[in-house]
Computed example of a mutant assay.
Amino acid sequence: MTDPGDSDARGEGRELEVDAELVRAYEDGATITELAARFGMTYYKARASLITAGVELRQVGPTTPSAPPGLVEAYLGGANIHDVAKRFGLSFGVARRMLLQNGVRLRPKGGGPKDGDRS
C-alpha cells in the first residue's frame, strides 16, 4: 500500500521528471509551443512550468541582426534613418532597431531645431 504522503501517489514524482525534461528540451532549443505539444499540456502550462523552474525565457519573435559595419557611423555622421536604410539595403524599421540596439540616441524627426528655433 502506498502512503498518502508519498509523492509518487500524488503524481509529483512524474511531474518533476516532466519538468526536468521540459527544461532540458527548452534549453536545447525547443520552443514553448513544441514543448506543449510534446508533453501534452497547454502553451501556458508549459510556459508556467519553465518559469517556476527558474528558466530565463528567450525573446519572443524575430530578432534584429547586428548592424552592418558603418551603419551607426553613417547615422552619427548626419545621415537620416531613411538614407542609412537605403544605403545598407534595409527597411526603415530594421535600420532604426539596429541603431537603438547599438545605444544610439535618435535625433528628433526633421533633424533637430531649425536656425530660428533655438531658444
Rank of each mutant, 00 (worst) to 15 (best):
M1F: 04
D3A: 00
G5K: 00
D6C: 03
D6H: 07
D8N: 03
D8M: 03
D8E: 05
D8L: 05
R10F: 01
G11M: 01
G13P: 06
R14Y: 09
E15N: 11
E17H: 08
A20S: 14
E21S: 12
E21C: 05
L22K: 07
L22S: 09
R24G: 05
R24A: 14
R24H: 10
A25D: 15
E27N: 12
G29T: 01
A30T: 08
I32L: 04
I32A: 02
T33F: 05
E34T: 03
E34L: 04
E34S: 07
L35I: 02
L35M: 07
L35P: 03
A37K: 13
F39I: 02
M41H: 04
M41P: 02
T42V: 01
Y43R: 13
A46S: 07
R47T: 06
A48I: 08
S49P: 04
I51M: 14
T52A: 14
A53H: 10
G54T: 11
E56V: 04
L57H: 06
Q59N: 11
V60I: 08
V60K: 15
G61H: 03
T63D: 09
T63E: 04
T64Y: 10
T64E: 11
A67Q: 09
P68W: 05
P68S: 11
P68N: 03
P68M: 03
L71Y: 10
V72Y: 02
E73H: 00
E73C: 02
E73L: 00
A74Y: 07
Y75V: 11
L76Q: 15
G77F: 06
G78W: 09
A79M: 13
I81C: 09
I81S: 11
I81Q: 12
A85P: 08
K86M: 11
G89K: 10
G89T: 07
L90V: 07
L90N: 13
S91H: 05
F92V: 11
V94E: 14
V94H: 12
A95T: 12
R96N: 13
M98G: 11
L99I: 10
L99R: 08
Q101A: 13
N102G: 14
N102Y: 08
V104I: 14
L106M: 12
P108N: 02
G110P: 05
G111R: 04
G111M: 12
G111S: 15
G111V: 05
G111F: 04
P113D: 04
D115R: 00
D115P: 02
D115L: 00
G116S: 09
D117K: 02
D117I: 00
D117M: 00
R118A: 00
S119N: 11
